[in-house]
Nucleic acid binder design. Structure first.
Length: 573
RNA sequence: CGGGGCGUAGCGCAGCCUGGUAGCGCACGUGCUUUGGGAGCACGAGGCCGUGGGUUCGAAUCCCACCGCCCCGACCA
């Protein structure tokens, strides 16, 4: 591909809106252009990378028996009504009407369609197990996109679906995907770690997320160096050592003007935060008012809370009027005197004696509040976030918290969808059973961005061989005044094309500086420089982008590389 | 949805406060020179100043409304 013909442009200045390295570099190097918030065009170079990532995924999913297919982006709303998700999912599911006023949706995933196809096509246990997958555009109307390709509204995802006879079969399909994902991310040059994660709205039985550590990540991971404990903070258990025992003291009002936060309260009373109780107020999607109590030195974990409450439609923060209406006061809140509220208390609060809690009166708290002496919780269980340095629930050594980007997920769905759609098979036992499903996603664009995050320097991108848009970047220097240079470069370019291994060829009439700078920005694994100097030195200057290692290779050797994709000697590789 | 910021040429920005009809760098076109690390000179093209309304003799500039984009939070995979 001649750079003089390539549809792209490199930018000398960083685009103002880009914060992350991947976003900045992909824009600057001409891989991407933004069309709207969370909506991007892939330029030819970007499309090439995306295709290569796709191909890696395709090979590995094929290798575990996946069958590629393609399911539609636009679905009749009935499909989503039948599974119930039409009503459970909020505004991120895009709904619209077609010309005959029929309700339609843009698909966020394809469990429904798979379940319907299974219902139509599978009758006998002999037809299972099976894995199907496709690469398809998803549109999710995110409340907020961010970080370039990290969180977008429109994106292509590989989603595969396993269809098994029973839980044991699902376990096997799940294991296969787990192993395939490890191979995929290794090939993509990503150090992904699998963490256990929440099963969320689909109510499955187990799930893992594959995470790449990154400070811009949106998830917090709880990791243990001493053992293999690795959980998303959303579900991570927390080691909470017992507090010092104390005799229970009587409640006592204390004036605390302006102490509306735990921080202020602890400072004002000159006590540690661990001697306070923190109240958080929520309303569930099904209309219940919830008071959650954790100790002042912890934060409420909303995922655990949602799961404990089995709250359909999740949680939203309560409004001030709603809190007052139930006899409580924001900033000075506690369950003392609360009405019409579900009271959920963290287990550590129950074990911690004589805490300072809100008096539900502006400017006042209460000392020595004890559960269940002073108020009766509806539930007592772990609803706290794990903190940096907390004891690992598994082995007790201190855990660490890290930010991560989710590059893939695997999910044991179970039979929710197949039951909803009546996707049954006739078993060997002569009975009808629901097909057991799993669902497994990998977002292409997000992976491309993560690859750049992991493989770049201050000069630009440094693609791993496996995903580079082209294996090499051929730069000619002085082709205008040295016919031999031009001829050699042209011949190498033609040869590569003929060998089915096209390379980038900078045939532009640009100064050497521009060409080298662009080559480093664009990030092909090898740069091949042909110049009067290189020819005089015996051939072509070969530079490895990643290491900067540089040497002169003979023309023969370079031709061998272009034909086979590898350098004969180990010297350059 | 709450908080903050920003919309002026393909990209990065100035001009706005104090109203007088748009400018800089890069990129782009032509010519000459240059040619191993973002070249030089000359000439040139390119802008409903986000949109609509208002104030004014006159609005990029002041006022109002809307739209869009970015960041933090909420939310989410």
């Amino acid at each position: 591909m001649r750079l003089s013909e390539l549809f792209f442009a490199t930018l000398r200045d960083d685009p103002g809106e880009a914060e992350m390295a991947s976003h900045r570099l992909l824009l600057r190097a001409g891989y991407l252009r933004q069309l709207g918030s969370g909506i991007y065009s892939l330029l030819p170079l970007g499309k090439k990378v995306s295709d290569r990532v796709e191909q890696v995924i395709r090979e590995e999913i094929d290798a575990i028996g996946g069958q590629e297919m393609e399911m539609p982006v636009v679905h009749p709303a009935e499909v989503w009504k039948e599974s119930g998700r039409y009503f459970k999912i909020g505004p991120e599911l895009v709904r619209f009407k077609d010309r005959s006023e029929r309700d339609m949706v843009l698909a966020m995933t394809h469990e429904e369609v798979v379940a319907m196809l299974l219902r139509d096509l599978v009758q006998s246990y002999r037809q299972l197990p099976m894995i199907v997958y496709h690469f398809q555009t998803k549109f999710r109307d995110e409340p907020r996109s961010r970080g370039g390709l990290i969180r977008v509204r429109e994106f292509v995802m590989k989603d595969s679906y396993s269809c098994d006879l029973d839980d044991a079969g699902l376990d096997e399909s799940y294991r296969k995907h787990y192993a395939a994902y490890e191979k995929i991310f290794r090939r993509l040059g990503l150090e992904a770690i699998a963490v256990r994660s929440d099963v969320g709205i689909m109510g499955g039985t187990a799930a893992h997320e594959f995470m790449v550590l990154n400070d811009f990540g949106e998830d917090t991971l709880v990791l243990c160096d001493n053992c293999d404990f690795a959980d998303n903070q959303q579900i991570a258990g927390v080691g909470k050592p017992d507090p010092e025992p104390e005799g229970l003291l009587s409640m006592e009002d204390v004036e605390t003007p302006g102490a509306t936060t735990i921080e202020a309260l602890a400072t004002f009373l000159n006590i540690p935060k661990s001697k306070t109780a923190k109240a958080a107020f929520f309303v569930t999607g099904d209309g219940r008012f919830v008071v959650a109590i954790v100790r002042g030195d912890y934060d409420v974990n909303e995922t655990k809370l949602v799961n404990a409450l089995k709250a359909r439609g999740g949680l939203r923060p309560a409004q001030l009027e709603e809190i007052k209406g139930r006899g409580m006061e924001a900033g000075y809140g506690s369950p003392l005197g609360a009405r019409d509220a579900v009271i959920v208390v963290d287990d550590l609060v129950e074990r911690s004696p004589n805490l300072v809690a809100g008096a539900n009166r502006v400017g006042w708290h209460v000392r020595n509040v004890n559960v269940p002496r002073d108020y009766q919780p509806d539930m007592i269980l772990d609803i706290a976030n794990a903190r940096e340095g907390d004891p690992c629930p598994n082995c007790g050594s201190p855990v660490k918290l890290r930010k991560g980007i989710e590059v893939g997920n695997i999910f044991k769905l179970g039979t929710d969808f197949t039951n909803a759609f009546g996707s049954m098979y006739l078993g060997e036992d002569g009975e009808r059973h629901p097909i057991v499903m799993g669902s497994y996603g990998i977002g292409l664009g997000r992976n491309v961005a993560c690859i750049v995050e992991a493989h770049h320097d201050e000069k630009g991108i440094a693609w791993p061989d496996e995903v580079a848009p082209y294996p090499a970047h051929l730069v000619s220097i002085g082709a205008g005044r040295d016919e031999k240079v031009r001829e050699t470069a042209e011949r190498l370019h033609d040869l590569a094309k003929a060998a089915g291994r096209e390379i980038l060829y900078d045939d532009r009439d640009e100064s050497p500086g521009v060409k080298f700078t662009d080559a480093e920005l664009l990030g092909m694994p090898w740069t091949l420089t042909v110049s009067p100097r290189s020819l005089a030195a015996g051939g072509v200057e070969v530079t490895r982008r990643e290491s900067g290692e540089r040497r002169t290779a003979s023309i023969d050797e370079v031709e061998g590389f272009l034909r086979t994709g590898r350098f004969a000697g180990a010297a350059a590789a």
